[in-house]
Computed example of a mutant assay.
Amino acid sequence: MNPDPEHPLRLFIRKLDGIAALGDDARQAIEQLPITVRTLTSRHDIVQLGDRPSQCCLILAGWACRYMLLDQGRRQILSFHMPGDIPDLLSLHLGVMDHSLCTVGPATVAFVSHKSVRDLTARFPALAAMLWRETLVDASTFRGWMVGIGRRSATERVAHLFCELYVRQQALQLASDWRCSVPFTQTDLADALGLTNVHVNRVIRDLRKDGLATLRTGELVIHKWQELVALAEFDAVYLHLNAHETPAEV
């Protein structure tokens, strides 16, 4: 049975279905989770460093990012999160937040209590395994980003992030025809990639000039997928998507 196309958790259910087929009972249990839906403004902190949350946040629409602030307001973005993600799932087991989570642009989120999540996973152990897998994929993605910041050139970092954002959205049918949402400022990209705004601007300009990709008004258009992949040395294995979810050659 397919998820209710109007249900607010449909993308989350679709994401889980991409890991393993959900039974009807498990799907209905997810749809019946007691949630509180809120629409948040841009740059709204959902949870902050040092908080002790009693609920998890599921992104329904818009984007969020994990981040940490250093002295003098210097920010490092640790990850970007799209609809269907639960970016603070770790709070289910770690009592204190070791980073902050905020919206990137306006976003709609659903809050579900830790108790409800624990009750759900106790009833459906296979769901517990799926959520555990999500935390492992997060860790794999962190490793991918660490390699990028430590060893890739500025151009390779931007190209690699563009490839990642496209395949992640395509897996949830949120991207097609080599176009996807990238609603981030150049400052956001710079803070995620360990670069300056000027450097990011230069790389985006060069990618456009070379006919590889164009970023404008929040939309990424990829013109030459294989060339962009080669430039970035991009291999989607660290995202652990199914083989059929990886883009074909353009």
Rank of each mutant, 00 (worst) to 15 (best):
Gly84Glu: 00
Leu193Lys: 06
Leu78Gly: 05
Gly18His: 12
Ala128Pro: 01
Gly84Met: 03
Gln170Asn: 03
Arg205Ser: 05
Trp63Leu: 05
Val250Gln: 12
Gly150Tyr: 07
Val112Gly: 02
Cys57Pro: 08
Arg168Phe: 00
Asp119Tyr: 07
Leu220Thr: 04
Leu174Gln: 14
Pro53His: 07
Gln55Tyr: 15
Ile77His: 03
Gln28Met: 10
Leu241Lys: 11
Arg208Gln: 11
Pro125Leu: 05
Glu245Thr: 08
Leu136His: 09
Asp191His: 09
Trp225Ser: 04
Leu60Ser: 01
His160Asp: 14
Asp71Trp: 09
Leu120Gln: 08
Glu227Pro: 00
Gln32Cys: 11
Val229Phe: 07
Tyr166Glu: 01
Ala26Leu: 13
Ser91Trp: 06
Met97Ile: 02
Trp132Ala: 14
Asn242Ser: 14
Phe234Tyr: 13
Ala192Phe: 15
Ala159Gly: 01
His244Thr: 11
His93Phe: 15
Ala248Val: 09
Leu89Lys: 08
Lys115Asn: 12
Ala107Thr: 03
His7Thr: 02
Met82Thr: 10
Tyr166Cys: 00
Pro87Val: 00
Asp45Ile: 07
His81Asn: 12
Asp25Phe: 14
Met146Phe: 12
Leu207Val: 06
Thr108Ser: 12
Arg151Gln: 13
Arg66Met: 11
Ile35Gly: 01
Ile46Arg: 04
Ser91Pro: 09
Arg168Leu: 13
Arg143Glu: 14
Leu92Pro: 02
Thr217Phe: 09
Arg74Leu: 14
Gly144Asp: 11
Arg157Ala: 07
Leu241Tyr: 05
His44Leu: 04
Asp51Met: 11
Glu156Met: 06
Val237Gln: 13
Leu241Val: 09
Asp206Cys: 04
Phe80Arg: 04
Val158Arg: 02
Leu33Cys: 02
Lys224Glu: 14
Gln173Ala: 12
Arg157Phe: 06
Thr135Ile: 10
Glu31Met: 15
Val117Gln: 01
His160Arg: 14
Glu6Lys: 10
Leu33Pro: 05
Ile222Asn: 02
Asp24Ile: 13
Gly218Lys: 07
Phe80Cys: 06
Arg208Asp: 08
His114Pro: 03
Ala192Leu: 15
Arg74Glu: 11
Cys56Ala: 14
Pro8Thr: 04
Pro183His: 07
Phe80Tyr: 13
Ile30Lys: 00
His7Gly: 05
Leu239Gly: 01
Asp45Arg: 11
Asn197Ser: 09
Gly105Asn: 07
Phe142Lys: 12
Met130Gly: 00
Gly194Val: 08
Phe142Ile: 15
Leu136Ser: 07
Tyr166Ala: 01
Arg14Asp: 10
